[in-house]
Design a binder for these strands. Structure first.
Lengths: 339, 339
DNA sequence: ACGGTGCATGTGAACGGTCACATTGGGCTT
DNA sequence: AAGCCCAATGTGACCGTTCACATGCACCGT
């Protein structure tokens, strides 16, 4: 007869208990390595667990403790270098603390897809949330939403206590100052999309640094982060050619810019200096190797988990966390202006 | 008195039942939209749910159905373009089917970190597993492991019924044939790490195509996928300069190669033709725009979920799934050999 | 010898859903 | 009008863990 009820079921705490000759509660104690357990008992139980290949049922545990040990991540464009690095770091940091990570990728930046994503995670009973979706709209959506779980926003300006971020303004100023110090006075800024917090911050840093040094500025060009856009923007810009340097808001657009300059028969950095932002791994092998501003995405991810697990971010009465300092990486795509 | 027991607890199915004046089972039926429910009852229950902002408790459901609706993803180097794209696609496809995705990043390729990652996911009671870790060692580890959950391996050679993959051999032959057709006869192959399935497959494709066209080959150089390595390998190679073309096993190394060729004062493609593999988004804006072989990582991810959810991959008695066909993208980094 | 103390362990009831089965009542057949 | 069926709903058990509390027992001081 194959009606043995234990046949198909995974072994439970009671199965272990029976075989070890103890109560189920004792097994539970071993599981949670409680104190006040005789070493001998512990070992016996442990041994039975190994034999049975026992695995605690997470659902049951979750049900009774009402803790999921799961952290949700909502990410836009998770396939890009920056977010992807942060996600990797988040996962590793979370796992080290025994947490699970559940990532959801946003389809769009509209309210509906945000809510769909969020609901998906809340269904999962997440205990914390990391938002890597630095569009202004998304950011506002989250701050307005009165979330019941602690959350942290990545890659924003750091004006909120929920926001963890690299100091974009400082980074942009670093880049801009570098160009100014090289003698450039006609500098364009190829910015990111208007509704991205980072793009805005970098633009702000650019404009501030320019005006503090009394350099006249032209209106920044709003791009979409892609090399493709950089290329076409570059072509457009070169029709006038009233500049000697461009500060691109990210490395991909800088790559497109270089491409356009080359297409026009000009040289980087001979005719035009170009500086990027991010320092993606490929940047140092662009031709010429790209001068850029490095931000530590992984550190960002680690800090997000640390902040979340320290449990401080739900109430909303904390000081804004420290900004991560970006670093200027000078390579071959910038040069002193020729007169 | 704040001893109201319902105060801090999330509303349960019974709370809803009480307020709607039905039994808890009826609420459950609404939840699973069972047939044989009066429309009126259904609506009433639904309304109470909305008022209470009721959310079914996933743990409880999981416990009784013993289904987690979670799919695990194990990934090496999840921050790179290929894997990251696949992961994004996997998540979206899975979510569309109501599944959750849990990603774990491998710290190393040793047995221990594999088992740690796997255990982490099994603790989570995953119903399926996608492995994006195309090292031979990792692949073998999984096939040997006698996993109890259905699983799919991505980016492998497709020799197993668990393996879903782009046809790496065909892709490599495409690249190689392109160079041969351009008249190149002295072609180097900069391969990926020896223990990567894809690297091996591409190398195999290269060698096959070369020998079928009676072109003499030199031993492939084993790289590590980074632009950095491509750069140094290129420098080394250029000390002899007995070649006119290089087939690089990925785009990053190709980028490093171009860098090295330029450093040596030579031109791509004038002096050396270079072809890559992957078609990362930046490739078309390299200088020169990179000729490469495109593989559709997102499609790979979607198929993985489709395969997993069709439930066919646990038994092991199925035909190997179809390979995805890669595509040659000709841009500016290759040119007919000059005589 | 006795009650108190504290450690090691056991007992039964939650947790919040679903499952299998029981119950109700209205409409149809005969 | 009796009997039957089926649709709509209710009842109680169960999933595998932890929690709160109970029990047994050795050891201690007096």
């Amino acid at each position: 007869m194959d009606s043995d009820p234990t046949r198909n079921r995974a072994p439970s705490i009671r199965d272990v208990a029976r075989l070890a000759g103890v109560s189920h509660q004792t097994v539970s104690r071993v599981l949670n390595n409680s104190t006040s357990l005789r070493e001998e008992t512990k070992q016996r139980v442990q041994q039975v667990m190994d034999e049975l290949q026992y695995r605690p049922n997470r659902a049951a545990r979750m049900l009774v403790t009402s803790r999921s040990r799961t952290i949700g991540v909502i990410s836009a464009s998770g396939y890009q270098y920056g977010p992807a690095s942060s996600i990797t770091a988040i996962e590793q940091a979370a796992r080290a603390e025994g947490y699970f990570v559940n990532t959801v990728n946003l389809d769009g930046s509209d309210r509906e897809s945000i809510e769909k994503a969020l609901n998906h995670l809340l269904d999962q009973a997440i205990e914390g949330l990391v938002v890597i979706a630095p569009q202004v709209r998304v950011f506002n959506a989250f701050t307005e939403m009165k979330l019941s779980v602690p959350f942290v926003t990545l890659q924003s300006t750091g004006t909120s206590d929920h926001a963890l971020s690299v100091d974009q303004i400082a980074g942009a100023r670093l880049a801009t100052r570098h160009l100014i110090e090289l003698g450039h006075r006609n500098i364009y800024h190829l910015a990111g999309p208007q509704d991205w917090i980072e793009a805005e911050a970098r633009m702000h840093g650019f404009l501030t640094e320019m005006s503090e040094n009394d350099v006249a500025t032209t209106a920044p060009i709003l791009g979409d982060w892609t090399a493709e856009f950089g290329y076409f923007a570059g072509r457009e810009l070169l029709r006038v050619r009233d500049f000697t340097a461009i500060f691109s808001s990210n490395d991909q657009m800088a790559l497109g810019l270089i491409h356009a300059v080359r297409d026009a028969g000009l040289d980087v950095p001979g005719d035009v200096s170009i500086i990027g932002f991010d320092d993606i791994p490929e940047a140092r092998h662009f031709w010429p190797p790209l001068t850029t501003v490095r931000q530590d995405f992984a550190e960002l991810g680690r800090r997000a988990i640390a902040l979340l697990l320290s449990g401080g971010v739900s109430a909303g009465d904390h000081a804004a966390p420290e900004l991560i300092v970006p670093e200027l990486i000078v390579r071959g795509s910038t040069r002193a202006v020729s007169r």
